[in-house]
Write a protein that binds this DNA or RNA. Structure first.
Lengths: 118, 118
DNA sequence: GCCGTACATTACCTTTAGGTTATGTATCTG
DNA sequence: CAGATACATAACCTAAAGGTAATGTACGGC
C-alpha cells in the first residue's frame, strides 16, 4: 500500500470518537468484541465494523482464542501518522511564530489588510 | 466546542490526501485559492470546499486582500491532535514491547493460541 | 462604467460511512 | 448432541463526503 493511502486510513480511523474510545480501552490491555461493545449504545455488528476499520489502518490486530477474537493495539499504523504530524508540527510552530511577529508589526503600523479568524 | 468534536474534525480533515497536500503547500508560506488549486485536477469549488473543512478544523485561517483570500497555516487545530496522538504513542509503544515479550515466550513454549496478522 | 479576476455559493449527483436487523458459523458446555 | 456463546457476514437504510457545473459577488484595471 502507498504511504498516502495508509495515512488516509489511519487518520480516517482516528476521526471517529467510538474508535478512539476503543483504542483507549485497548491501551489498558487486550479485550474481546463483547467487552469492547459494553460501553457503547450500539449493536455488536457496529463494533465489529469499527474494529475492521481499525484493523485495516493497522492500529489493532486480532488473536484467536476459541470462539473469542480478542483485539490488541498495534504500533504499525500509528507510527506513520505520528511521523507525518510531527514533521509538520515544527513548521506549524515556526509559522505561528512568524504570525506572531506579523501581528506585532501590524499593531505597530496598521495597513488595510484584515485578518478573519472565525 | 467539545474536545472530542474538535478531534473528529481535525483527524477527518487530515484523512484526505488533497487536504494534506494543501497543508504541505501552506507550510512553505501563505497562498491564494487559485494558487492552491493549480497542482490538482479538480475544480476551484472543490478546493474551496477542502479549505472550508481545514478552516473548521482550525488548521488554516484566511486573510482578506482585495478579491484574494490567501490562506495560512494555523497551529490551534493541530495542537490537540498532536497531544492526543502523543499521549497514546507511549502506551502504544509500551504495548509493543509487551507484545514482543509475549511473542518470545510463545516461541519458547508454544500454546494453541494463534496470532493472525492479515 | 465595464470587463476580467478571484473567489463563494447553490443545486445536484454518486459514493462511502455508520448504523440497523437478521442470519450464519465455530466453539464451549451441560 | 443440543443449546448457548461469541463472534462475522449480509442486506439494507440514511446521512454525509467529495465531486461537478452554473451562477453570484466584490474588487481592480483599462
Amino acid at each position: 500500500m502507498q504511504s498516502s493511502e495508509r495515512l488516509n486510513l489511519t487518520f480516517a480511523a482516528l476521526a471517529d470518537p467510538t474508535r478512539r474510545a476503543i483504542l483507549a480501552r485497548l491501551a489498558t490491555g487486550e479485550a474481546t468484541v463483547t467487552e469492547l461493545a459494553v460501553p457503547f449504545e450500539m449493536s455488536q455488528p457496529a463494533i465489529s465494523k469499527h474494529l475492521k476499520v481499525l484493523e485495516r489502518a493497522g492500529l489493532i490486530s486480532m488473536d484467536v482464542d476459541a470462539q473469542r477474537r480478542p483485539r490488541r493495539l498495534e504500533t504499525k499504523g500509528l507510527k506513520e501518522a505520528v511521523d507525518w504530524i510531527e514533521r509538520y508540527r515544527e513548521i506549524f510552530e515556526q509559522n505561528y511564530q512568524r504570525l506572531d511577529a506579523l501581528l506585532g508589526e501590524l499593531q505597530a503600523k496598521p495597513s488595510r489588510r484584515k485578518r478573519t479568524h472565525k
